[in-house]
Write a protein that binds this DNA or RNA. Sequence first.
DNA 1: ATCGTTTAGTTGATCCGTCAACTTTTTTGT
DNA 2: ACAAAAAAGTTGACGGATCAACTAAACGAT
Lengths: 160, 160
Amino acid sequence: MSADQVTDTEFDIPLQQMVTFRLSRVHAKLNAQAARILKETAGISLSQWRIFVMIESHGKITPAQIVKRTDFDKGQVSRTVKGMLREGLISVEGSESDQRSHTVEFTDNGFAIFQQARPAMRARQNALLGSLTASERQVMFTAMDKLELAMEQIEDESQS
Amino acid sequence: MSADQVTDTEFDIPLQQMVTFRLSRVHAKLNAQAARILKETAGISLSQWRIFVMIESHGKITPAQIVKRTDFDKGQVSRTVKGMLREGLISVEGSESDQRSHTVEFTDNGFAIFQQARPAMRARQNALLGSLTASERQVMFTAMDKLELAMEQIEDESQS
DNA sequence: ATCGTTTAGTTGATCCGTCAACTTTTTTGT
DNA sequence: ACAAAAAAGTTGACGGATCAACTAAACGAT
């Protein structure tokens, strides 16, 4: 007795809202699950995980490069990095070419902790991707591209 | 001069992460844009808008019903409703059958403000939906369903 | 009828995301 | 060379999301 809602058809216009509502809910659930897994397996936060992933895929990297590649917020990257430093998960090294900047890198301990979370995260990713067919994945990506483009056009209109 | 990132191909495994990363970014952008439009056109928040939408599609409704239908957080609904009451956007009426509960409803002023935001929100929805083909929309929805299902199975596994 | 359980709603704590202000360093244009 | 502009990071503020503890009312089983 818990599958009786949502089957209603009183949606005339609100059905349109479903795209963003739906996306928002899926996102929230994905996030919450990832956060839970990370906490349980490695005791790290989702933000920290994302920094780790960036370091892993790029090697030594500066916060600014992370921001460019991911669109994460500058401020949040700064704070997350600070926290990870405090916890000894990463180390920094001042860039000699630019006095403002520094690169971040795994510490041994940080890498070990990263590795601890990977199997579960990898398994989850595979489960998620595996639940979709190749063409569904494909369409999903192009659809998200298109949504981002459409958004930019809306921006343009409402600002002209 | 701002489309030079993300075209890299150094992603071996992290490409897998792209599903959730991508979804997260699209979601964030959609949210930010909706919030901006709502603030500009009607001076309301996204949470308030969502409550309005629920009231509109359902008529008099209790917070608990909103929670059931949307999976919004109980606490946040409570706080948002409180704020909307304070601002005179909605009115409450104690349900006589249940002393704990109350239904919420538009005030005239609240409805007027809701109407103020609707054209822009409707236009945006149409722009977003219109940027996708019918089959892309279709696939997107089934894909999100599947992702939610897959997530539930992951839960089951990691808790058994 | 009453005790235990469930449900509605409120509140507090905490973290994440976003925005803006600010400092310092680098780059650029003349 | 030097002033103006842009970029890298830091920090504060604020709203949004999540989780948990709590009160009060309703329900249900015996």
